[in-house]
């Protein structure tokens, strides 16, 4: 039904989850360093709270010490588990770093999983071997022993990229017409074009031309295009052409034949680095 994207998955630390909706999405796995940072923040938070509460409870004398020790027990053994259970898999540290605990089936974790992985942390941090750190080296999900037993993984969260549409604006019909109708780019080329088109708005106009030239040179040569063609627009047009179906393509071809042919898509290419958008220091 839908062509699969098999074989094109990135070499990143991602985990693919298939849903009942018959789609697959991936989680990006959090690395050991962001997790260590989150742990550090959590320890700092607990330490700070314990000190503040200790000062307050000191007013109560010996009874206050008992209460403080009770709270310390709950904080040391329950902080992570309770936070993760009731706050969607995040502690304050995880929230600050932008990571989240989810079940390795992609579901939210339940209270049992949250408690288990946090109680087993004491085994993970067992000196001098730190078995949790060793366990993270095996397997593809950076799971420590607590994660393995609870069936959880820690994923990146909150660094959401923007859905900004690929902007192939201002592609002239003249430019579209320059692409041979029979041209069928392969998937690697489409991915490359998509990456360029998706990011081109972050670049200055001169830089766009400089970058797009690298790929466009090939098309200019093989399709005998004018050497001074606007390569940025050319790549946009090729991307448009590549992501268009046959019916639409032929409709466009028929329409294009009616239009006049100007050479408005030719621009001056940068000759120097300054032209290409570099600032000299």
């Amino acid at each position: 039904m839908i062509p699969s994207a098999a074989g094109t998955s990135p070499l990143d630390c991602t985990v693919l989850v298939s849903t009942p909706e018959n789609v697959s999405f991936d989680f990006r796995i959090a690395g050991p360093f962001s997790r260590a940072l989150a742990l550090f923040v959590d320890i700092a938070v607990i330490g700070f709270c314990v000190i503040v509460i200790a000062f307050i409870l000191a007013l109560l004398g010996a009874a206050g010490v008992g209460l403080l020790l009770f709270l310390m027990f709950v904080a040391f053994w329950g902080y992570g588990g309770l936070m993760e259970a009731f706050w969607n898999g995040q502690t304050l540290g995880k929230k600050a770093v932008g990571i989240r605990v989810v079940s390795d089936t992609g579901l939210a974790i339940n209270a049992g999983q949250a408690m288990l992985r946090n109680i087993l942390r004491s085994a993970d941090l067992f000196p001098p071997f730190f078995p949790g750190a060793v366990a993270m080296l095996f397997g593809s999900r950076f799971q420590r022993l607590g994660d393995l037993a609870a069936g959880t993984m820690v994923v990146l969260d909150g660094q959401r990229s923007s859905p900004r549409p690929p902007v192939a604006d201002g592609v002239t019909e003249r430019m579209r017409e320059r692409i041979p109708a029979h041209f069928r780019p392969d998937t690697a080329l489409i991915d490359c074009l998509a990456a360029y088109v998706g990011r081109r708005l972050d670049l200055s106009a001169a830089r766009r031309l400089e970058l797009s030239q690298i790929l466009a040179r090939h098309f200019i040569r093989s399709w005998s295009l004018p050497p001074k063609i606007n390569t940025d627009q050319l790549l946009c047009a090729i991307y448009e052409h590549a992501t268009m179906d046959e019916e639409h393509r032929s409709a466009r071809r028929d329409r294009d034949l009616e239009e006049d042919r100007s050479d408005a898509d030719v621009v001056e290419h940068p000759r120097t680095l300054e032209d290409a958008g570099y600032e000299s220091r």
Binding site: I2, T187, I190, D191, A194, G198, R199, T243
Partner: peptide, 8 residues
């Protein structure tokens, strides 16, 4: 399937 841009 349609190879939209990576960011999207």
């Amino acid at each position: 399937a349609m190879r939209w841009p990576a960011t999207t």
